[in-house]
Amino acid sequence: MYDFCTDFRFLDGTLMALTRAQVESIAHLARLELEPAEIPAFQDKLSRIVDFIGELERADTSGVAPMAHPLSGLSQRLRPDAVTEGDGRELYQRNAPQVASGLYLVPKVIE
């Protein structure tokens, strides 16, 4: 899990403001392009969000079992293994900006 609470906290538990580099890194992971002038504002806003979530860190959760989902006690429903979807390509590709020979086209990806 991505642990903002420990990543951005000093050892004594007090909040550490996000650095410029951390904001740039988060923006990159989210593929968001930020203007350099916008970054200080995001440092401040994101730090406050992290601090808000950090409230949970201060709650006493000893004796509380971790939950993977808020609907506790319910289990994933299963679906029988049957093909229920036909070929909808023609319809779906009407939404695509560019297609050729049945393929969705995107800007060249180079490894």
């Binding site: 293994d81 049945g102 393929l103």
Partner: peptide, 20 residues
């Protein structure tokens, strides 16, 4: 026969995007 989270066929070799 079908995909892990949808009812599309998982058979190999179909024309592109006809099983998506």
């Amino acid at each position: 026969r079908s995909k892990i989270f949808s009812g599309a066929s998982s058979a190999y070799g179909a024309a592109p995007n006809t099983q998506a």
